[in-house]
Amino acid sequence: MLRIPLLAGWRWLLGLLLLSLLPPLYADEGGVIHYPRRTDGDEFRSVYELALLQLALEKADSPLRLEPSYYSMEQERALVNLERNERLDVVWSVTSHEREQRLLPVRIPLDKGLYGWRIALLPSSREALLKNVRTLDDLRPFSAGQGHDWPDTDILRSNGLPVTISANYGSLFRMLQAQRFDYFPRSLIEIWGELEHPRSKQLVADTHVLLHYPAAMYFFFSRQRPELAETVRLGLERAIADGSFEHLFQQHFAADLQRAQLNQRQVIELENPLLPSATPLQRRELWLTPLSPAR
């Protein structure tokens, strides 16, 4: 039997008591969660995700506060920093087998699956480009633009669609205007905000086609920070249960979904070979099918 001298025993017990009274460890000593900063002018792309993350923290009764990284980061750099547990505590991204192996996902789709519903951005001079597209074969003669490290790039290619890539998000809009590729598929919850940006003044949203593949955007955390992931998971589950998740989602995207006039479009279904088997497709409350039942 382990014997602890009397004085040492009291110190040991006192140490346990003090540890029990300390607050839980947070992302750093200041209780801050660092997320990847957007480049100047692109902050609108993070408004919903940050609002949802803040909601999750509030529902989990967490005192953590959110701060952007010092420098802006493209997606892959942010994922690498998160994987190394350096300078970042959370990243939100479309999931894939590879990302779930590297990082710790909270498997609640922030987008309710809408990142897999895509409308094409087109040059305004070519707004009728996809008018006669009815099938996947009809779409294959046209080239899509995508980020070099986006899962969507591999998804489109795996379905036989040609893709032109860029390492920089902003450059894709300039490349589309220069007709370096034919169309730029954007999610239902991205496209309208992007069209309001000055760089899209010569672009329009296609009115004919709706691409769909199963996809989910998650909050990802370092595998060294399971307690942070659990805090956010708990907060999201509580927000789902009390309706505040749905309220926030509708507040941000209800008008966009109506604007898209989805039932007037030709739907083209794609397969997603990157979708992990652990994706909670059976939890119907986590997903939104944006088309009416008649579709």
Results as ranks from 00 to 15, higher is better:
I4M: 08
I4E: 05
L6C: 04
A8G: 10
W10G: 10
W12L: 12
L14W: 09
G15T: 06
L16H: 08
L19C: 08
L19A: 11
P23Q: 01
V32E: 12
T39A: 14
T39N: 10
G41Q: 01
D42T: 10
F44Y: 07
L50K: 03
A51E: 09
L55N: 00
A56V: 04
A56T: 04
E58P: 07
K59W: 01
K59Q: 01
A60E: 00
D61K: 11
P63D: 07
P63Y: 03
S72C: 11
L79K: 05
L82C: 03
L82R: 00
E86K: 14
L88V: 00
S93Q: 14
S93R: 11
E100F: 12
L104F: 03
V106Y: 01
I108W: 03
K112R: 15
Y115L: 14
Y115Q: 13
R118F: 07
R118Y: 04
S125I: 08
A128V: 13
A128L: 13
K131G: 08
K131A: 13
K131W: 10
V133Q: 06
D138F: 11
F142S: 06
G145Y: 08
W150R: 00
T153E: 05
D154L: 14
I155Y: 08
I155F: 08
N159C: 07
N159V: 09
L161M: 09
V163P: 02
S171N: 15
S171D: 11
F173V: 06
F173P: 03
R174H: 10
A178N: 09
Y183I: 02
P185T: 05
S187W: 02
I189S: 04
I189W: 05
I191N: 04
E194G: 01
H197G: 03
R199M: 09
H208Y: 11
L210A: 15
L210D: 02
A215I: 00
F219P: 00
F219N: 02
F220H: 03
R223T: 11
Q224W: 10
A229Q: 08
V232Q: 05
R233L: 00
R233P: 01
G235N: 02
G235M: 07
L236C: 02
A239C: 02
G243W: 04
F245W: 03
E246G: 15
H252W: 12
A254L: 10
Q258F: 09
Q258K: 15
N263G: 13
Q264F: 06
Q264V: 06
I268C: 03
E269L: 15
L270I: 13
E271Y: 09
N272S: 02
P273C: 06
P276N: 03
A278L: 10
E285T: 14
E285C: 13
L286M: 11
L286G: 02
L286Q: 05
P293V: 12
A294H: 08
